[in-house]
Amino acid sequence: MVPPLARTSAEAHLFMDLHPCECGAAGFARGSSVVALDDGDLASRYAGACAGCGREREFLFRLPAQVTAPAADGRFGFSGDRDGPSELLDPGEWLWVADAYAGQAPADPAGVPADQRPRARAVLQRAAAALDEALKFVPAEADEVPAAAVTSERGRAAVAGQPGRLRRSRLVALRDAYTELADRFG
């Protein structure tokens, strides 16, 4: 079986964080290495013992053809049209991730101490980056993500009961709002 593509290490780590061990613990000391696949492609291998039960965990992700340094602005994939949608997370999961990050930041920078502003800015940048990832699932000729693209339980829960949550215009507006708020923490 061909391992899924992890476009960046940030995307790989996020995927691992979202997929806990059978015991429920998400954390494990992740040793990483680059390995050759049978087809000659390269992959990142992350392995280590579960922090909760000690069970060995392993994740294998195909590496992109062109590896770049991690983006300073919190992107999970590449910017622009350089890549397509994630193979690791569906668009609903990206919405869940955006909600989780945005929920860690105050809604108003007024009164936030200077030493806490960089963290608030960073989580809002991550929230905006997650919405950029959800937008990559919107076909060029469409106005929203196809419902069939949401395949995970977490993703379905993130959009359940919220018609229009996967519309391009709504994703863009929310992304822009998070970006603007992040800038206010700068």
Rank of each mutant, 00 (worst) to 15 (best):
A71N: 02
A72W: 12
V97T: 03
A105F: 00
P85Q: 07
D83T: 15
W94Y: 02
G92N: 09
D108Q: 07
G84F: 02
D90L: 05
D90E: 15
D99F: 01
P91S: 13
D83C: 15
D73I: 02
R75H: 10
S79W: 08
D99E: 13
P85T: 01
A107I: 05
A71Q: 09
F78G: 02
Y101I: 01
D90N: 08
P109R: 03
P106N: 10
G74H: 02
A102E: 04
D83V: 09
D83S: 14
L89T: 08
G74M: 05
A105K: 01
D81M: 06
D108S: 12
P106Q: 14
L88A: 12
E87T: 04
G92P: 10
L95W: 03
Y101W: 11
P109I: 04
S86G: 07
G92E: 13
A71I: 01
G84M: 07
L89F: 10
A98T: 05
P109M: 03
G74D: 06
G103L: 12
L95A: 06
L89M: 14
W94L: 07
L95Y: 02
D108I: 04
S86Q: 10
D99N: 14
G92I: 14
W96V: 00
G77V: 08
F78R: 15
F76W: 07
E87N: 06
F78Y: 15
A100M: 05
G92F: 11
F78A: 05
E93M: 06
G74A: 05
P109Q: 06
G84D: 10
Y101P: 00
D90Y: 11
R82A: 13
A100F: 09
R82L: 15
P109W: 01
R82I: 12
G80I: 08
A110N: 00
D81F: 11
V97I: 13
A105W: 00
A72R: 12
P106S: 14
W94A: 07
E87D: 13
W94S: 06
P106A: 11
R75F: 08
F78S: 03
G84N: 06
A71R: 05
D81G: 11
G103D: 11
A102W: 03
A102M: 11
S79L: 10
A105M: 00
A107C: 03
L88H: 04
G80W: 06
D81I: 03
A71D: 15
Q104D: 10
D83E: 12
A107D: 10
S86N: 08
P106E: 14
Q104K: 04
D73V: 09
L89G: 00
D90V: 14
E93A: 09
D90K: 07
A110T: 05
A105E: 06
A102R: 01
G92C: 11
L89K: 11
A105V: 02
Q104N: 03
W96N: 04
E87K: 08
E87C: 14
L89W: 02
L95K: 12
Q104F: 01
L89D: 11
P106K: 14
D73M: 11
G74K: 10
P91L: 13
W96I: 00
S86V: 00
A110G: 02
Q104V: 09
P109D: 02
P85W: 04
